[in-house]
């Protein structure tokens, strides 16, 4: 096991290096004046763009430019994001907590409902529940997230006025920005609880519900199918047959013997789910005007804020690589059949 994980860890910097090469290869399609933006940390510098091109050697051969660029990236200087009106690094720090919070509120229902529905579908194979879960999962998979999001907005905000877009209502936002509220983590719902302000917690939850429902709908299908097939496989195993033949009650067999083992691949793949949610936030945050990293990335792409887009992309790529590594490690850790090998 150690050798396998060590191999993955050795590969990690290699992949990270490749990601920077890929991003830089994309950047090299651009005009030097546009690329100079990546080195600007202050809007006043925009006036001296020619001297910046010369200072940073954007008229030099491409491999030299790559090293210069990489050095700056390693120093944490990702440039100035015009859409966020702050350095890219600060923009990521400012927008990421919102996305993290949203991902959490989508991830929990996905796991709970997915495991429950997948188990039910496997236990009652080829019965009504199974067919319904199949129809739901294929329909949810076929409806694009932006159509889902717009439908949710139409019904829950337009018709019912339950889940408004944005992050907080005006009065709650003013209170959060005032001196009376201490931002411990940047996660508004958690901070509200820590400050003992239940009304802010409720308000934040109301705003997060719309995008969280949308993300859940879009991503749940995969988990239901995974849980179902994993459960079906376990139900065919000898130890389940043994448990049944011992005369154990069916609920005990299913809960204690089958489901616990069927959860292994589901848990290990949960970090893939988080990664796919991180991709999904680009659309949902844009629709619900939720100030997170996805809405900023999409806006930066529309406005040709290149430092913003590349900074956003590299940050998400780093998270994805770490998420995939976590999945591999968890898999080896949870499955003794692999560990013993």
């Amino acid at each position: 096991m150690a050798a396998y994980i060590a191999r993955r860890l050795v590969m990690l910097p290699l992949v990270a290096f490749g990601v920077t090469v890929l991003i830089f290869a994309l950047l090299s399609f651009l005009d030097p004046a546009v690329r100079a933006g990546a080195f600007i940390t202050n809007p006043n510098q925009l006036k001296a763009i020619d001297s910046i091109i010369r200072t940073y050697g954007l008229d030099r051969p491409i491999y030299e430019q790559y090293w210069t660029w990489l050095r700056e990236v390693f120093r944490g200087n990702l440039g100035w994001s015009q859409t966020a009106r702050m350095p890219v690094r600060e923009a990521i720090a400012a927008f990421f907590p919102g996305t993290l919070e949203l991902t959490f509120y989508a991830f929990v229902p996905i796991m709970l409902i997915g495991v429950w529905l997948g188990t039910a579908a496997a236990v009652h194979r080829d019965r009504l529940v199974d067919h319904l879960s199949r129809i739901f999962s294929i329909s949810f998979r076929s409806l694009p997230s932006f159509v889902w999001g717009l439908l949710v907005l139409m019904v829950f905000y337009g018709r019912l006025s339950w889940f408004p877009p944005g992050r907080l209502s005006l009065d709650a936002d003013l209170f959060v920005r005032s001196g009376q509220f201490h931002a411990y983590t940047g996660l508004v719902t958690l901070d509200a609880l820590l400050n003992g302000q239940l009304w802010i917690f409720a308000d934040a939850l109301r705003h997060i519900a719309g995008p969280a429902i949308t993300l859940t709908m879009v991503s749940i299908a995969l988990l239901v199918r995974l849980m179902r097939s994993s459960m079906l496989e376990v139900l065919n195993q000898d130890y389940v047959r043994t448990a049944r033949s011992k005369g154990l009650a069916e609920p005990v067999v299913i809960d204690k013997h089958a489901r616990r083992n069927a959860l292994i691949p589901v848990i290990t793949l949960s970090s893939y789910t988080i990664v796919s949610l991180l991709g999904g936030v680009v659309i949902t945050e844009t629709i619900f005007n939720f100030p997170g990293i996805g809405r900023w990335g999409a806006f930066a792409a529309q406005q040709l804020d290149i430092p913003g887009v590349t900074g956003f992309t590299m940050f998400v790529a780093a998270l994805t690589v770490l998420g995939n590594l976590a999945a591999d490690v968890l898999y080896v850790f949870f499955d003794p059949r692999i560990r013993l090998r």
Partner: peptide
């Protein structure tokens, strides 16, 4: 390297550039 990005994010970057 190419799979290190959520697909929509990489596509957004490529089109933006």
């Amino acid at each position: 390297i190419f799979l290190a990005f959520p697909s929509l994010v990489l596509a957004v970057t490529v089109v933006a550039v």
